[in-house]
Every structure is written in C-alpha cells, then in structure tokens.
C-alpha cells in the first residue's frame, strides 16, 4: 500500500506545487503532521514572496494589513532591471520595467501596474510600518542599489525588541544580479 504521506519530500513538493487553491493546500496540511510540515512553510501564499522594490501597493498592503504581513516569513526584493541592460540582452526576456525575480520556492508578487516606477521617498513610511507588521519575517534578501529606504525597515525591526536582528546581516556580492548586491538578513 502506497501512502501519500510517506512519499519523499521532493515528490510532495512537486505535488503541492500543482495545487493552486490555498484552501486545498491547507486542507492537506490539516490531515496529518507530515503533510503539514511539507505544505505550510513553503506552499502557502505569502509565506515566501519575491517582490519588486517599486511595488508600493504591496508594501502598503503589508503596512496596513497585519494578517497578511504576519504570514510573510521570507522576502526577496529586487529593483527593476535598467532598460539599457534589457535591450542589450535577448528580447525574449522582455520584463516589464517592474518584475519580481522568479526564484524557486518563492511566490512572485506581480505589481498591479507596471507604469513608471514609484517615487522611492514614498517607500520609507510604508516600510517602517511594514517592518512592524512583518512579525515573523525570518529572511530578507535585497537586490537593490539604494539601501537608504531599507535602513528604516531594519531600524523598525530592531525597535520591535529583537535587538539581535542586525547582527545577522550579511552582505553577499553576487555578480550578474541587477545591482550586484545581494543582501541577506536572517534572524
């Protein structure tokens, strides 16, 4: 007798990737501990997200909605690739000016509108509130040129009372990324 809950983790992952409705993912998680462990950390939406820095609608959602923000465990933020770089590479990868990185295991959050990038100064107050709401954030990877708006985010996270958070910031240079800087924060 073959049991679904005894399958190797990598097969469960592929099955879970094929389930679109989050309600169904949660139903599966509630059926047994093994499936819970496989489904919840990686397969519920908003757990691990990949977003674009200029997606102000996402950050205002995180700033205003505690329930969504509390779900986020891991976040990758990238800035839009420069148009000059885009034209020099193949036209097959015709990103909109604002598109999140597509990374395995992260759900990309596509910005609602891909018009001109929003003013970064709008981002600062949003990030301060978003950091307070993202209570369970464990990992943040930044692929951005300008870290200035994100300093607010780090400060707000430290103000939450987890002073040790900044000690774990490591900056990793990754050639080939948009900005060449890939900053990872782990709590």
């Amino acid at each position: 007798m073959a049991f679904l809950n005894e399958l190797p983790a990598e097969l469960l992952d592929i099955i879970l990737c094929n389930i679109d409705d989050p309600t169904d993912v949660l139903s599966l998680a509630k059926s047994c501990r093994r499936l819970y462990a496989a489904a919840v950390p990686d397969h519920l939406p908003w757990r691990r997200i990949s977003a674009c820095e200029h997606d102000t609608s996402l950050f205002s959602l995180l700033a205003s909605n505690k329930h969504v923000a509390r779900g986020v465990r891991s976040m990758v933020v990238n800035e839009p690739c420069e148009p000059a770089k885009l034209t020099s590479t193949s036209s097959a990868h015709s990103h909109s000016p604002c598109s999140p990185l597509h990374l395995k295991g992260y759900r990309p959050v596509i910005p609602a509108k891909s018009e001109s990038p929003a003013d970064l100064s709008l981002l600062t107050p949003l990030l301060r509130r978003a950091a307070k709401n993202c209570e369970k954030l464990e990992e943040l990877r930044l692929d951005v040129h300008d870290l200035e708006p994100w300093k607010v985010f780090f400060t707000a996270m430290r103000d939450r009372g987890e002073g040790m958070i900044l000690e774990h910031v490591e900056v990793v240079e990754q050639p080939g990324r948009c900005s060449g800087r890939w900053l990872t924060l782990r709590t």
Binding site: P22, L26, L44, W46, L61, N65, H67, V68, R70, G71
Partner: peptide, 8 residues
C-alpha cells in the same frame, strides 16, 4: 494561524 490569505 495560516488562513491569513483570506484577509488579503
């Protein structure tokens, strides 16, 4: 704990 996407 996990039904947060419904809030969205």
């Amino acid at each position: 704990e996990n039904g947060y996407w419904r809030w969205f």
